[in-house]
Design a protein around this nucleic acid. Structure first.
Lengths: 401, 401
DNA sequence: TTATTAAGTCAATTATCTTGACTTATTACT
DNA sequence: AGTAATAAGTCAAGATAATTGACTTAATAA
């Protein structure tokens, strides 16, 4: 006689939620616009001067902002601009890839202060977990050597690895990292570091990085098409990373393409993995990156066919993304060698006609993102920083269960 | 010497924002769970009993909730459940389609109280605008005849029509409604009705309807695949309709399919329009709906080929949606005749393997939505009601500019 | 030199949620 | 039957954080 299925409801909010939101909004405004005076902040956020003053004082006490030289601009009292203090917070970012793992320490503004890399032994998590924990510990202690108080200002550890997550049958598909998917990674890292740990897939991390310091900075609707070992899309929707119901949103690499009479996942045709296969190269070869860069920049005809099909498929993907998401811009990111990315971008154009062709566009339809092998780790670190400081709905609500 | 580009920032919030959010959260909880006591609400929303009591009193004064018979359930004082009052608010929904326009009056719970339909003369907005305004006025006065105080409780007019919006070259594409796109519809309706007017495309409206009273009720991540004259997807992401940067998100009908050696927009192959073309039927024929229903239910072999290709394309679309959005469920909606929808659903299965196949699923991957020609108008009306009463980020912020 | 303008502060006020003690109504236990 | 336990809900005071309007400060324009 128990009719009590759990009651579902969104969480309410209170004064603390209000003030937390207002603090975040001010930090966000400083991040997007650079230094601003209290009066500027009041106008921009629609808060009163007094409220802004109170919050600025609090942020200054917390070491998150500081004042700069007053600037005279016409009549009236000169304004005192405030800016974010880079050393106000730090985060560790960790990228786990097929054959390599990278860790970075990043500050509030997204500058990378420490970076470290290690090869991942083929044994999977059983041996890899220790490598990863050592790498993180190393980065952390190096950071502590560079800046004081870094430990107390560490907001978390962000992890990025190829998705999708939580799928059953990925055990022996070499396209996925089956063994890692089953491993209790978050628990291990939380226990091993004592930090707040978050996880995203590599495309999402690339998008998070672009939003913090790249082409998506200050944008509310942007999609990063990530070309790496696999292919994914990192979705910035309404100013936040969109994760989907199970954290797998954007796994566009598994979208099916119909070509040559059969259906093939996109990432079997246009990813680096497909290029390795096309070249019969060993993905674990440490010189491969440089080799491919040479091939691409040297105009080796042996790579042209692959570039052509891949570009055609990416052109289609961009059209699809524009059609489905209606973003302000699409950003081409990836861990591909720079020369290859340039060749791809050149080969992708001109873009297919789409609803993105509209009067009054200010942003290009397609932009190159960061071509830096560290950008995924940077994005991983940007996760905890965003969670701690960016305005978003969940941050207003009372602690979610 | 003017370096002042506008400062961009999100809006802050204040006490009013807090209380507005908490009111919305309580309304949402009552909508999802049915009647709840103050104590239940306090637990579910994580607000204090006292706060809940205050807000409930306010909502009761406003006529949005009322109390029911106290229920004894075990020890302790019996609880008094509160429920939403259907007559607490009303909205008008307007669907503008190619050859017909429909208007409904809907209450707070999404029940349709009044419905009216009119043919749209081929002249476009120049003659159609009056038809529409008359239709709305008629529905409105009928509503006033049924319930008292309906006018003061009218929260707005929601409009649904085929997208995409704001595109240049749609003037003579017969697949779009070019003339209507250029017409200042919102301004005309605002001026003609004095109501708050909102616009969404028909797929979005279908999703809004499913979320209020259909298969997406209480879900935070659901995608409605809408098969009508065109094809679109209505996106419920993070519990809200996602619109994209320009209100055109989800226009999946323009996604390109590669088949038979050429690329074709999805909606040229799987929409009702494509069926009309396949049958060489006149879309303006008022008997067409019934005729197609007969064809589909009678098992006429003449329609089989179309159903087969359309189902294959829809199967692919569902796979794409699952892959890209990672929703809790996909809902097949549309203005197609019921027999046709049933045939399509039967022909679509089995679904392609995707990341949506996971242990512990509770919802089906694909569900049928409302098969009611009035559901788009209902969804249009659900727009203003959601804007007025559902919890969402924007509602917390101070008036956006 | 003075009026004007804009930035920023001060002190009182207001809106709203929280707290903890209290009341009420019911069932469970002895 | 009487009493303890439990849960719903109220009361009144308190805490938090934004708002208001007058005021101060510091610059330029006339």
């Amino acid at each position: 006689m128990n009719d009590s299925r759990p009651i579902r409801a969104k969480s309410g909010t209170n004064h603390e939620g209000t003030s937390a939101h207002n603090r975040r909004v001010m930090i966000d405004a400083l991040r997007i616009n650079g230094a601003l005076s209290r009066a500027d902040l009041a106008r921009a956020t629609r808060l009163t001067k007094q409220t802004v003053s109170n919050i600025i004082e609090e942020l200054e006490r917390d070491g998150l902002v500081n004042s700069q030289e007053a600037v005279r601009k016409g009549r009236g009292q000169p304004s005192t601009p405030y800016r974010l203090v880079p050393e106000g917070a730090f985060a560790i970012g960790l990228q786990i890839d097929r054959h390599v793992t990278r860790a970075v320490a990043v500050d509030l503004l997204g500058s990378v202060l420490v970076r470290a890399e290690a090869g991942l032994p083929p044994g999977g998590p059983s041996t890899g977990a220790k490598v990863i924990l050592d790498l993180v510990a190393g980065v952390r202690s190096k950071l502590a050597g560079i800046v004081q108080q870094s430990e107390t200002r560490l907001v978390g550890l962000g992890v990025a690895m190829p998705g999708p997550f939580g799928i059953d049958g990925s055990g022996d598909d070499p396209w996925m990292m089956g063994a890692w998917q089953k491993f209790p990674l978050l628990e291990t890292l939380t226990a091993g570091t004592g930090l707040d740990v978050g996880l995203q897939n590599d495309a999402a991390a690339a998008a998070t990085a672009e939003r913090m310091v790249g082409a998506a900075h200050g944008l509310d609707h942007a999609v990063c098409l990530f070309v790496g070992y696999g292919i994914g899309a990192g979705l910035i929707l309404n100013g936040e990373l969109y994760r989907g119901a199970n954290g797998n949103a954007g796994e566009i690499g598994m979208a099916l393409l119909f070509a040559e009479g059969k259906s093939t996942p996109l990432e079997h045709r246009a990813s680096l993995a497909s290029l390795y296969q096309y070249l019969s190269a060993d993905p674990a070869d440490p010189d491969l990156h440089a080799h491919i860069n040479d091939l691409a920049s040297g105009g080796d005809p042996g790579i042209d066919t692959w570039i052509e099909t891949a570009a055609a498929d990416l052109r289609w993907s961009i059209h699809l993304i524009e059609t489905i998401f209606d973003p302000q811009t699409v950003i081409l990111c990836g861990s591909a060698p720079e020369a290859l990315v340039n060749r791809l971008i050149a080969a992708i154009g001109p873009l297919l006609p789409s609803i993105a062709e509209r009067r009054g566009r200010t942003l290009p339809r397609l932009q190159p993102g960061m071509a830096d092998p560290w950008s995924v780790a940077l994005g991983a670190a940007a996760g905890p920083i965003g969670r701690a400081f960016d305005p978003h709905f969940a941050a207003i609500l009372k602690d979610s269960r």
